[in-house]
Amino acid sequence: MTAEAESWSGVFLRRPAGEPRGVPGDAERNVKASLDRLLDTGAPAFGPVTVEDLMWWTGWTLTDTRTTLAATGARAVELDEGTGPHTKALFDRNGNIGPTIWWNGRVIGTWAQHADGHINHHLLTDPGSQARPAVETEIHRTLAFLDGTRVTPCHRTPSERSLAT
Rank of each mutant, 00 (worst) to 15 (best):
Gly59Asp: 14
Arg66Asn: 10
Arg132Gly: 09
Trp8Ile: 02
Pro133Glu: 13
Glu78Gly: 03
Phe145Ala: 15
Ser9Ala: 10
Met55Leu: 02
Ala3Gly: 12
Val135His: 09
Gly98Gln: 04
Glu28Ala: 14
Asp80Thr: 09
Val135Phe: 02
Thr65Met: 10
Val135Cys: 12
His118Pro: 08
Ser9Phe: 08
Ala74Met: 09
Leu38Ala: 08
Asn120Ile: 01
Pro158Arg: 15
Ala76Asp: 05
Ser34Gln: 09
Thr67Glu: 14
His140Gln: 06
Asp147Trp: 03
Asp80His: 05
Pro158Ala: 03
Gly109Cys: 14
Leu124Tyr: 00
Val11Thr: 02
Arg132Asp: 03
Leu35Val: 13
Thr142Ser: 12
Ala70Pro: 05
Met1Ser: 15
Gly18Arg: 11
Val107Gly: 09
Gly59Met: 10
Glu6Ala: 14
Thr87Asp: 10
Thr83Asn: 04
Gln113Ala: 09
Ile139Ser: 13
Ala17Ile: 00
Glu19Ala: 04
Leu39Arg: 13
Trp60Cys: 01
Ser159Leu: 12
Asp147Glu: 07
Glu160Val: 04
Phe12Gln: 06
Ala112Ile: 10
Glu6Ile: 06
Ala89His: 02
Gly105Trp: 12
Thr137Ser: 13
Trp111Arg: 06
Asn104Ile: 00
Ala76Arg: 08
Trp102Ser: 05
Gly18Ser: 08
Leu62Ser: 01
Glu136Leu: 11
Val11Leu: 12
Asp53Trp: 01
Gly82Gln: 08
Asp126Trp: 11
Cys154Asp: 10
Ala3Trp: 11
Asp116His: 11
Arg150Thr: 07
Gly42Phe: 14
His122Pro: 01
Trp102Phe: 07
Ala131Val: 08
Pro24Gly: 08
Thr41Asn: 11
Ala131Cys: 14
Ile97Val: 02
Leu54Ile: 14
Ile108Pro: 07
Thr58Cys: 09
Glu28Asp: 08
Thr68Pro: 06
Gly105Asp: 07
Arg132Asn: 08
Leu13Thr: 12
His86Trp: 15
Leu54Pro: 01
Glu52Lys: 07
Asp92Phe: 04
Leu38Ile: 11
Asn94Phe: 15
Ala131Arg: 02
Ile139Phe: 13
Ala134Ser: 13
Ala134Phe: 00
Gly109Lys: 07
Trp8Tyr: 14
His140Trp: 11
Val23His: 02
Ser129Asn: 14
Asp40Thr: 10
Thr152Trp: 11
Lys88Thr: 13
Thr58Arg: 00
Trp102Asp: 11
Leu39Gln: 00
Arg106Asp: 05
Ala43Met: 09
Asp26Phe: 02
Glu81Tyr: 08
His140Cys: 05
Pro24Asp: 07
Pro127Met: 12
His155Tyr: 10
Trp103Leu: 05
His118Ser: 13
Ala134Asp: 13
Gly42Cys: 13
Thr83Asp: 12
Val151Phe: 00
Ala27Arg: 04
Thr41Leu: 08
Leu79Lys: 05
Gly98Ala: 04
Glu28Leu: 06
Trp102Glu: 10
Ala131Ile: 04
Val31Leu: 09
His121Cys: 00
